[in-house]
């Protein structure tokens, strides 16, 4: 069965860049979703859970760290892997979001190889 992906970022341009980079990495998803912030992402998850969420941190309405905490409270999303994508890369921040329940962290700027490395463990 194919995998599903959700990209959560308030910038439509960045969602487009991430989508393109994921494709360039050679990873294939049967279903892809986009959301502009945490609130929108939670709404879309009600319609159907996804396998992987790629999530920005600084977003209006609901930031990425809050989204991680909320998703971890949804029983249906137990198996959902959340990878944070951000230009902020301090160790404190990484440790904090991992402690909140994120499964990985990709620093911007990213490359297709970086997506391959971080996402492929969750593809099987």
């Amino acid at each position: 069965m194919g995998k599903s992906l959700m990209i959560v970022d308030d910038s439509a341009t960045m969602r487009k860049i991430i989508m393109r980079t994921v494709r360039m990495s050679g990873l294939e998803f049967d279903r892809t979703e986009e959301a502009g912030n945490g609130v929108e992402a939670l709404e879309k998850l009600k319609g159907g859970v996804v396998d992987i969420i790629l999530c920005d941190i600084n977003m209006p309405e609901m930031c990425g760290t809050d989204l991680v905490k909320r998703v971890r409270q949804i029983p249906d999303c137990n198996g959902t892997k959340i990878i944070m994508v951000s230009t902020e890369s301090s160790q404190e921040l990484i440790d904090s979001v991992i402690a909140d329940g994120a499964n990985g962290f990709i620093c911007k700027p990213f490359t297709p190889e970086k997506f391959q490395e971080k996402l492929s463990p969750f593809m099987n």
Binding site: S11, T13, M14, T87, S89, K108, P109
Partner: peptide, 9 residues
Amino acid sequence: GEAGNLLVG
């Protein structure tokens, strides 16, 4: 905005 974000990063 994104270019600036990457630049500042």
